[in-house]
Design a protein around this nucleic acid. Structure first.
Length: 423
DNA sequence: TCTGGGGTCCTAGGACCC
DNA sequence: TCTGGGGTCCTAGGACCC
């Protein structure tokens, strides 16, 4: 037993900030979402003074001041880079790995001979700490879901030393008995309510429910979850990330916008980002949606959340094509007289780049021209940064840009932000 | 002043076809 | 009073995740 591990970074974004600023150790630190909106990462000290996940920053301003909490805007350049370093180390220590999110990975340990899984978990932790500097928690169990459960206990009680293993039936039962149903991976708010109504309070009680009841009320997803908790693996490892089926780029504006020009610049930028993401995964899209939102937190203002979906003449990943089509969709839904808070572009109907179906009115020559242009564009951006080259519609006004008032430097991805050591 | 962004899977129901 | 049956595809919506 003991065939999967789940490793995740402890309060990952906060830990990334601490990497380059050791004075933050022992202090309450939080990281805010885009636009400095709400809390997305908290140090233990911040949790201890009662800062809740996802609470709105402006609603807890007093608490932050009172405890002199250190506050950061999200720095995704930094977190993404630290994440890939962490994954490289973990990948080198196990036969298989699935990167599950920016801060966690499943390891496939099937086939490893190991006398003591707790010791193995400690090796994982200490290697990531030594080579990257990020503290982690490690859970090990016979299914991915049980590895998640084990990880929960690894972090819950310091006395476990950051590693928790579930091996015997007895250990598994004891853990599931202690685990409130709402804390199980895959049980969200709705299912928690449903299960509590049926007197299912713990993960163990969930495993004892009749399988056909689970199937009827929670679909095959719930049924797989139940099997996994019973120790029967139903979830595959996904070692190579499959290409995305939908790609979405959207942002709230730093301030509400009423003018077409600011909104259209944002939409052009989002369309361009979608095109870049498509090219990165060697895909093209044939459907594009543009959507706008007014501010739902201002009910006294007129509300309107229009969207427009269009089918592209041919599947494309050209920034020029997507920006132009997005502009057309935006024009179709634009109404004067609203204060807009958010805009987004989503692409779907995604096909591999080399399987694009051409139509009569779009010559291969045109597509080929765009392709070469995009290659050049991407290499310029790789060399001189994301904003080196852009489509004219993207504009330069920046009226729509995020608020990021407490952004740390891009320590690891920008030469100008490198730390300098003095002796 | 101020409330994130980006995904997945599953199911039900309608449109459409023969 | 009567009004087929079976199949596929697509979409919207609901659940979940970090």
């Amino acid at each position: 037993m003991g065939q999967y591990a789940l490793v995740d970074g402890n309060c990952f974004y906060v830990s990334c900030e601490r990497l380059f600023n050791p004075a933050l150790e022992g202090r309450p630190v939080i990281v805010l979402s885009n636009n400095d909106g709400c809390v997305v990462s908290r140090s233990d000290e911040a949790k201890a003074i009662g800062i809740k996940m996802a609470s709105a920053a402006h609603l807890i301003a007093d608490l932050l001041r009172k405890h002199r909490v250190v506050v950061f805007s999200s720095n995704y350049n930094l977190y993404g880079d630290v994440s890939s370093r962490m994954m490289t180390v973990l990948g080198s220590l196990a036969p298989g790995m699935e990167v599950y999110s920016i801060d966690e990975a499943f390891l496939d340990l099937r086939g490893i001979q190991c006398a003591n899984w707790w010791d193995y978990g400690q090796i994982l932790r200490s290697e990531v700490l030594r080579r990257v500097g990020i503290p982690t928690g490690v859970g090990i169990g016979p299914t991915k879901t049980l590895a998640k459960v084990a990880n929960h206990f690894a972090k819950k009680d310091r006395r476990h030393g950051g590693v928790f293993t579930l091996e015997t039936t007895h250990e598994i039962e004891a853990a599931l008995r202690e685990l409130p149903i709402g804390n199980v991976w895959g049980i969200g708010g709705q299912y928690e309510k449903l299960l509590l109504r049926h007197n299912v309070r713990t993960a163990l009680e969930f495993t004892e429910m009749p399988a056909d009841w689970v199937r009827r009320n929670m679909s095959v997803v719930g049924q797989r979850l139940q099997q996994e908790l019973r120790g029967i693996p139903c979830l595959e490892m996904e070692s190579v990330a499959p290409p995305k089926k939908n790609i979405c780029t959207s942002r709230s504006f730093g301030k509400m916008l009423t003018q077409y020009i600011g909104v259209s610049e944002a939409v052009a930028n989002h369309a361009h980002r979608c095109a870049c993401k498509l090219r990165q995964q060697h895909s093209a899209a044939c459907v594009l949606t543009v959507f706008l939102h007014t501010n739902p937190f201002k009910p006294e203002l007129p509300q309107y959340n229009p969207s427009r979906t269009i089918r592209l003449p041919t599947a494309s990943n050209s920034s020029l094509m997507l920006v132009a089509q997005a502009e057309a969709a935006l024009k179709a839904i634009w109404r004067d007289g609203y204060a807009w808070k958010k805009a987004g572009v989503m692409v779907s109907g995604i096909v591999p780049e080399n399987e694009i179906q051409l139509t009569l009115d779009h010559s291969p020559k045109q597509t080929e021209k765009h392709k070469r242009l995009m290659l050049t564009l991407d290499s310029l951006r790789g060399r001189y940064g994301h904003h080196a080259v852009s489509v004219a519609t993207q504009g330069v006004s920046n009226a729509w840009k995020l608020r990021q008032e407490r952004l740390s430097p891009r320590f690891t991805t920008n030469w100008n932000d490198l730390l300098e050591a003095s002796v």
